[in-house]
Design a protein around this nucleic acid. Structure first.
Lengths: 151, 151
DNA sequence: TATTGTTATACTCTATAACTATA
DNA sequence: TATAGTTATAGAGTATAACAATA
């Protein structure tokens, strides 16, 4: 007896979503150990590794709407992990920096999340993982190209 | 100047989520043409290709909580695409069937969604796509195995 | 006592419109 | 007038607890 979802197994989109869903729900536990969610972890990572960038630059790099990004930075700022400094050259803008505590949390969380990621791809060779990443980038570019063609 | 998310590119989970996100937002347009969402399309697909299965069996096959599945079936039933028949052997349960209209919508929607899926994986050879699916299954099994180990 | 389907509820992520203060 | 950040709001997906009817 074949699995009930046999009709969908030919869609790469179905497989991508299923795998991503189960993998992310696994990783959420890693984020939560540090009081973070996926979005706050990613934001902390980008701020810690790109100090001084503006809020909208970080948001755009993560493909998060500026409007939804506000509360993410709010949460990180309340937790004392990130600070907003008014940009010297443009008083409308904020330059984001990780606090010393933020840097510390980032390093520990990154190690835990990376360990979780490695567990999820266990059994795949480094060459396979590289191929996986390349294929995902092809799909990414296709989606962006097709989306741009619509507009 | 490297991209701002360089610190996250080593995580397969980050790449999976990004690609899945942009691919699915592309596919949503295909679903919407037929008045469907991703979850209602998947449900219609499974009901149409597995007539007579119970609500919980379809829900489990799609990894959707029974509790969240109720309104999905409600929506399909209101649209006259699916019907709930009380199971003969268990009056608690429903056997799901696609209506003739449901079968028709499913076939047209499946063709459109498959075309969209093919556009997204354009540039990948059949062998690469097979490898992609195999790698996604490895990750899937890893996540399930690790999750089960927790419990 | 366990299971099928259900309701209610809440949290996360995402998407859009409208506002403010600066430029 | 355009842009950076903000607020409010709504939709979609997901998760848990508690209930009725049936097994």
């Amino acid at each position: 007896m074949p699995r009930l979802d046999h009709a969908l197994l030919g869609y790469s989109g179905y497989r991508l979503r299923r795998t991503t869903s189960v993998a992310l729900s696994r990783m959420n536990a890693a984020f939560a150990q540090f009081g973070l969610r996926r979005t706050t972890f990613s934001t902390l990572a980008l701020v810690a590794t790109n100090p001084g960038m503006r809020q909208s630059q970080i948001a755009e790099a993560l493909a998060i709407e500026r409007t939804n990004f506000v509360q993410i930075v709010d949460e990180l700022e309340k937790a004392n992990l990130v600070i907003r400094e008014t940009a010297v050259d443009d008083r409308r803008a904020y330059a984001l920096h990780a606090t010393p505590a933020g840097d510390g949390v980032y390093k520990k969380a990154a190690a835990a999340v990376l360990a979780c990621d490695r567990e999820l791809i266990a059994g795949l060779s480094p060459a396979q993982i590289e191929q996986l990443h390349e294929m995902l980038e092809v799909i990414d570019e296709n989606a962006i190209r097709l989306g741009a063609a619509d507009a």
